[in-house]
Design a protein around this nucleic acid. Structure first.
Lengths: 243, 243
DNA sequence: TGTAATAGTAAACGGCGTTCACTCATTTGA
DNA sequence: TCAAATGAGTGAACGCCGTTTACTATTACA
């Protein structure tokens, strides 16, 4: 069970070579440019050979999208872990990392988050599945917010102020993260919406009519969001979110 | 100059028949399903004939996207005009109309706002061109906000609180709408980002992990945004935003 | 009435996803 | 050890696709 057989090694190597080729095509020519024949050509193979590894082109693209999502999540987690123990600093670092990756990988961003994937309804309707792109990324943001809440739950708006209908609607999220207060859930979703919207518009060049420096807008909105959070109690002398 | 010639009538009829076919294919099978051959087949023609009307498939799709954007804008303007004269009610109606159209036309939404269009960098980089999708829609929201400001400019945060770098970055937007105060610009962008992000995620099914009733979240965020605005001074007896 | 522009066709080129029948090397098990 | 089974890869073919080219009617106009 431990050592992969020779066949298995070759197989995984082929799979990743296929995905590498697909990503290269994606980056250079957009999602439309991904073609089995081109991938096979780059590998010195014929197109039907790829069907030994993926049942269809769409399946390959969905698989690639999943990999990209993992890559993004690891990027975020690395930034969070490098930001120290203060939840607010972690949140800021994660948000900045999300923007950085997206701006640097616009086509990949479009594949993961943009429109409904080529194969009609791609990312499945698993309401309660961890494979959801939003869910897996959301979790990275939920953790620091939740810790912040545990440290000083005061300054959040009281539950009564959260609309009853909204509170009921937050069910799926609070099932996933047990003991997540409604106010924290609402705050998290509000911040995530802002982040997602801002980065989407920047990546798709839909902010150029309004703003010449998208990073300035991003930093302003990020600061406005962090201002809603309680100050950290025990971080020590200078809680630099700095620069 | 006034009456279009017979040829012109036939031509515009053919153009709109082509676009109708393209949209039908778009709705039923996504952007990938739009093909010149299928359109021509539906029209009882051959594919090359379409080249008399559009220089390429990509050009046709870009043109269609422009039409969809106009349709959306007219939908918003109709909702705004039906909401009475109160700017806050107009804003609320416009935002709800944006969500309604998008949810009812998810594929069209994806074509207009999603990812970078099929033909690489589709919507051109006209920083100062009115054809920008964000710009044309943004204008619908700017007007009521600006009028609200003129009625009672008090409750906005003072200009000093708006970051200097952000203020400079808002140049393009403020050139387009003359005499638009920085605070109003910032508030408008903040609301538009929220609206765009929320609707995008709902349309692309990226909220299902968190929320069972997206409309509840939408209404909550909309209410939170409107709460930032000053109360209207002179609307009369009951300024019902109601139902 | 004759000429120029216009709308359309048929055929062809190259590219695409996918299927099918086939070969060949590798692994497996008696 | 040797035969059977499995896996990887090929080549040909089918039916799509966008686009170009040469060609034919039809319409508009002077």
């Amino acid at each position: 069970m431990t050592a992969p057989t020779r066949r298995e090694r070759l197989r995984t190597a082929a799979v990743s070579e296929i995905k590498d080729g697909a990503r290269r095509l994606l980056v250079s020519g957009g999602p439309q440019a991904i073609s089995l024949r081109a991938i096979a050509r780059d590998m010195g193979m014929t197109a039907p050979a790829i069907y030994r590894y993926f049942p269809s082109l769409d399946a390959l693209i969905v698989d690639l999208a999943g990999d990209l999502l993992d890559e993004l999540r690891e990027h975020l987690e690395a930034a969070r872990d490098a930001a120290g123990a203060a939840p607010v600093a972690q949140l800021a670092a994660t948000a900045r990392a999300f923007r950085n990756w997206s701006v640097r990988h616009p086509v990949e961003f479009g594949l993961v988050f943009g429109s409904l994937l080529p194969g009609v309804d791609a990312f499945p309707d698993n309401c309660t599945n961890d494979d959801d792109p939003g869910a897996r990324l959301g979790a990275v943001f939920v953790a620091p917010l939740l810790e912040l809440w545990h440290r000083s739950p005061m300054p959040m708006p009281p539950p009564a102020q959260v609309d009853h209908r909204l509170a009921e609607s937050l069910g799926p999220m609070r099932e996933r993260h047990r003991e997540l207060p409604v106010e924290v859930a609402r705050l998290m979703l509000s911040g995530w919406t802002m982040l997602y919207g801002l980065v989407s518009m920047e990546v798709y060049h839909q902010l150029r009519w309004a703003v010449s420096d998208p990073e300035a807008l991003f930093e302003a909105e990020l600061a406005a969001f962090l201002r809603q959070l309680p100050a950290e109690p025990d971080t020590g002398p200078a809680s630099a979110t700095g620069t």
